[in-house]
């Protein structure tokens, strides 16, 4: 049981939880994640500590409300409540060395995972530019990133209420790839790093590839245990089967089989929507 010390909505659909979890706070390194199980009938979801304090024993998680679990957490958990399980840290830390000039990208709430890695890269002497592309009301960690890295760029796309969400998301993908192309044309980078939806990661990779710049991607296939036990998160990298949870989550973007990743990431979309709709019906219907 892990106490919620602080909870706030920091942007549309982005919720900040500061959680007492000393076992993670004392050990986590940038690039690692935790598995959270918030409710007794709940699922296990991977989330990334954004910031932490080993001495005080807390971590911060920022969730993007996209399914039943994140929605129920936002709706039902209050400060002072407890999260049932926070397991971790899991996965391998990001590679910490001097790459030179780095462009670290976060699409949507992916920026919260980019944040600790970019900050650490900057601290060891890399020149780090971060790029956050998202919808206008969903900007997060702007001031924090401006303080943490050499240059932080935010590109926002308005939400067109006349268009459905997937079409709106296509506009973000377009802005993302256009911006990355402009930046790579203007300046030489030694490394591109990206966190975000697999489709956007591939779209960015297709641009980066043209410039021949090394690229790392943090992959987010569906996970269950997060400890290498189930194989749900398997990805094809360099023609081999890898488990994102124990071999990753960071991989060489040039080696990733994006078709496999994208197909696997969407396998439960219909059931996820059903779970969310039933939950929304239940809370709108007046509770129990």
């Amino acid at each position: 049981m892990y106490k919620i010390l602080e909870k706030k909505e920091i942007a549309m659909r982005n919720v900040w939880y500061k959680i007492q979890a000393p076992h993670v706070a004392g050990k986590v390194k940038p690039g690692q994640f935790v598995i959270v199980r918030a409710f007794s009938n709940g699922e296990r979801i991977p989330l990334t500590p954004v910031m932490w304090d080993a001495e005080e024993g807390w971590i911060v998680l920022i969730t993007f409300i996209r399914g039943k679990t994140t929605m129920k957490m936002a709706a039902e958990l209050k400060e002072g409540d407890y999260i049932l399980n926070v397991a971790g840290p899991l996965g391998n830390p990001a590679e910490m060395k001097k790459f030179g000039k780095i462009l670290a990208i976060g699409a949507y709430t992916g920026i919260v995972e980019t944040f600790p890695i970019a900050k650490a890269w900057h601290e060891i002497g890399n020149y780090v530019t971060t790029l956050h592309v998202t919808f206008e009301p969903m900007v997060v960690l702007k001031e924090e990133l401006e303080r943490a890295v050499d240059s932080h760029i935010v590109e926002t796309v308005p939400i067109d209420p006349n268009l459905d969400f997937p079409t709106n998301m296509k506009n973000v993908t377009k802005r993302l790839t256009e911006t990355v192309r402009e930046m790579l044309e203007k300046e030489d980078y030694d490394l591109v790093f990206m966190v975000g939806p697999a489709g956007d990661q591939r779209a960015v990779f297709n641009v980066v590839k043209e410039f021949g710049i090394p690229m790392k991607a943090d992959l987010h296939p569906i996970m269950v245990d997060g400890t290498g036990m189930c194989g749900s998160c398997r990805v094809t990298v360099g023609g081999e089967v890898k488990f994102a949870c124990i071999d990753g989550p960071e991989f060489d973007a040039y080696q990733v089989d994006w078709d496999v990743l994208i197909a696997r990431s969407g396998y439960y979309t219909d059931m996820e929507q059903r779970a969310m709709q039933e939950y929304m019906k239940a809370i709108q219907g007046g509770g129990e």
């Binding site: 709940g42 699922e43 269950v224 059931m271």
Partner: peptide, 15 residues
């Protein structure tokens, strides 16, 4: 472990 046979009462799906 996740009781997917009780979906959607339990959140974890299985197909």
């Amino acid at each position: 472990l996740m009781k997917a046979y009780l979906f959607p009462e339990y959140d974890t799906p299985v197909k």
